[in-house]
Write a protein that binds this DNA or RNA. Structure first.
Lengths: 215, 215
DNA sequence: CAGGTAATATGATGTAAATCATAAAAATGA
DNA sequence: TCATTTTTATGATTTACATCATATTACCTG
């Protein structure tokens, strides 16, 4: 998948020679599940685009628990945290699945932003969309554990279908709760016949009922 | 303050004739404290910039309680929710203080975004910054009430100094909690000598101690 | 200025979910 | 193959906070 990110929206309409240069300057790498792409507090030197897989943006809460701020899916940028000249990442990026990621050095990103109106416009649109998405997920933080878990499962099923290969620890971190609470929520869902699960695997049997719970 | 928003970052470098046209097409209006600038779920037809005062972005949680997603201060855009062609507002905007607001019709905003690279770049930068700010405040949602209240007070004091003219209901909504919890938190802070308060007025006596609490 | 409403205050009670504890099964790996 | 770690599971305890209740005070408005 050489230069796969060049087909993504902000890059698509760049001139050919710029694209060729980007192939040189940007790297694509594969991150195994649970590995860290970048670290909260570290110097932010690049903007990242996800080519495949999911990535969680995780921040340590003042109490020390890791809180998943947002889950970024395939074809989306991990920008925000670093795009426009901030010196440190506000959150860590952790691969929620195996993930292939393109790394655009900050200097290059700035250059593209300054040089190509279409690029700037595309980034403006993408980031405004992201703000809206964040607004939608933010309100969830004040909701019950059961609904947060249901929400995470449904969100995951959008990309992965009805069979999800995640542990309760992973689910709990995405939902901002504890492993035990995640297990208990799943047990309740099981008892209602909405899901089935075994070690590292959750099967959604009645997503529609889950969606009702979510409301 | 005619066309005051034209001095703000995205507009500053627009050509003179475009600025003149904007003076025609955009309106500036004053919103009294607690009044609604736009409503969650309603058709999003404009992008707003705050010229003075504070505005809260409020979303109804699934349980029905209003949750303040973000507090936007003077000179900042209320974009996100509407900037790039979404049909409904994801949250309501409520004036947290008396506020003066410029309304840019969506059609005009699109035109500026498509026509002026500097405008697109500026919006890209502003929205990426906003994403970072949201990431920073998001983690707070999972924190204790006392720390959330302390955080809100300190944030407010950035703009308004040590004497804040807000009721406990207002504070509680910004902190995502109840009036009673807000009052109790303030009582604890009072007992420690960190704040003084009377009806509709909170005076920060020892902001540094509050900041410690916040950590 | 009397009556109503909003803000402050605090006590009592309920509850969701974190924490603590323990255990068994499954995976890992030395 | 045996020890260690991870995952799932569930029960007991604790805790922060919401909820409910009630009272007082300040304020507005007819």
């Amino acid at each position: 998948m050489e230069g796969g990110f060049l087909h993504l929206d902000p890059f698509r309409s760049l001139p050919k020679e710029e694209k060729n240069r980007l192939c040189q300057d940007c790297s694509i790498s594969a991150f195994p599940k649970e590995s860290r792409i970048f670290e909260e507090g570290k110097k932010a030197d690049a903007v990242w685009f996800i080519l495949s897989g999911w990535v969680r943006l995780v921040k340590r809460s003042p109490e020390g628990r890791p809180v998943t701020l947002f889950v970024v899916t395939t074809r989306e940028p991990l920008f925000g945290v670093s795009a426009v000249g901030f010196d440190t990442y506000a959150a860590s990026a952790i691969a929620a699945t195996g993930a292939e990621v393109a790394k655009i050095p900050q200097r290059i990103f700035q250059h593209l932003l300054n040089t190509y109106p279409s690029f700037a416009k595309s980034i403006a649109v993408l980031s405004c969309k992201r703000i809206r998405e964040m607004e939608l997920t933010y309100a969830m933080a004040y909701d019950t554990v059961d609904r947060r878990i249901a929400h995470v499962l449904l969100q995951l099923s959008n990309d992965f279908g009805d069979t999800l290969f995640f542990t309760h620890r992973e689910i709990s971190e995405m939902a901002g709760t504890t492993v035990e609470s995640s297990i208990r929520a799943l047990s309740r869902f099981k008892r209602k016949g909405w899901v089935r699960s075994s070690r590292g695997k959750i099967v959604l049997l009645q997503p529609k009922e889950l969606a009702k719970e979510e409301r």
